[in-house]
């Protein structure tokens, strides 16, 4: 069934289903349950939902206490308040202890509506990928989200899921840590989360303007980077274009570059000094570095006609 919904809601709903058969799961919330999806758990399992108040540092360390006693605590807040306000607690109480704590960051990325810069999280991947034991998931559809939540729950150790504020639509692609959502091409966009929307627009424009096929790889398990994704890129792709709703310098592209990639890699995301703005999705998109027209032009100028990459 085609769905379009906020992925935080997909997360909360699916987690409440998992709780039917997994008594170890509990949910901790930092007073944002009606915005971050945890409300579905609160409604169904009130006695397994702990309101921690507006105190993220305490909440994250508490979760670690629950984890060492055999529970699987899922901690919900906005990505910004988890990853930044409680960074040391995630680093020390969770990651360094390898505590089985799951972190759900809603409102991740630079599109946080009228909330603006304080509520955006455009370097959360950088923060979470630079501490030990952490896994990062970044789904692009309700189905992706359910897959990621299932994986996180199966894994015994820390994990973080970043979820955009914007609603995302159902995908028809095969679920997994990464997948081609188009046919395989030698010039490929590698994207994650909300940026899949933008990638699709770039792909369409290329097709219309230049009659060129650019394929898209959707990556859900972004840290550690899946080894078979690296192999796939090395075996079949000449030119990788990363599009991500994150700082270009420290996100998915940077994680890919940590590996021995043979192909050229180019990246589009937020510039290092960007602080995020208030505004509706389309307005921010139009005026940002993630504007699909801009990206299309960049790609065309840099590669299509210079070294005939796309004409091969």
């Amino acid at each position: 069934m085609m769905r379009s919904e906020k992925l935080a809601n997909s997360c909360g709903k699916y987690l409440s289903q998992l709780m039917d058969n997994d008594s170890a799961i509990i949910v901790l919330d930092g007073d944002l349950a009606d915005s971050n999806g945890a409300i579905y758990v609160q409604e169904k399992y009130e006695n397994r939902f702990i309101m921690c108040g507006i105190a993220e540092q305490c909440m994250v360390s508490m979760a670690a206490g629950f984890a060492v006693e055999g529970y699987t605590p899922w901690v919900f807040s906005f990505a910004s308040f988890l990853c930044y306000r409680a960074y040391d607690q995630i680093r020390v109480s969770v990651a360094q202890c390898n505590a089985n704590v799951k972190l759900v960051g809603s409102h991740a990325g630079g599109f946080t509506g009228r909330n603006g810069k304080t509520h955006s999280a455009i370097n959360d991947i950088a923060m979470m990928s630079s501490i030990p034991n952490m896994r990062i998931y970044s789904p692009a559809s309700p189905e992706d989200t359910e897959w990621a939540v299932g994986e996180m729950n199966k894994h015994d150790g820390p994990a973080y899921i970043r979820l955009p504020r914007e609603a995302m639509s159902s995908g028809t692609w095969k679920l997994g840590s990464w997948t081609w959502i188009t046919k395989r091409t030698s010039v490929a966009i590698v994207t994650t989360g909300l940026a899949l929307k933008i990638a699709n627009q770039v792909r369409e424009q290329f097709k219309n303007l230049f009659d060129e096929e650019i394929g898209i790889i959707n990556t859900v398990a972004i840290h550690p980077v899946p080894q078979d994704l690296i192999e796939e890129l090395n075996n079949f792709v000449d030119y990788v274009i990363v599009i991500e709703d994150h700082l270009t310098s420290h996100g998915l592209a940077a994680l890919l570059k940590c590996h021995q990639l043979k192909c050229k890699i180019d990246q589009f995301g937020w510039p290092i000094d960007y602080m995020a703005d208030s505004g509706d999705y389309e307005d921010i998109l139009k005026h940002s570095e993630l504007n699909p027209e801009k990206i299309t032009t960049h790609i065309k100028n840099r590669y299509a006609f210079n070294d005939n990459y796309l004409a091969r």
Binding site: I50, M59, S61, M62, G65, P73, Q89, S93
Partner: peptide, 8 residues
């Protein structure tokens, strides 16, 4: 905070 989690 960890102690609260454990105590709960």
């Amino acid at each position: 905070s960890v102690g609260i989690g454990m105590a709960m």
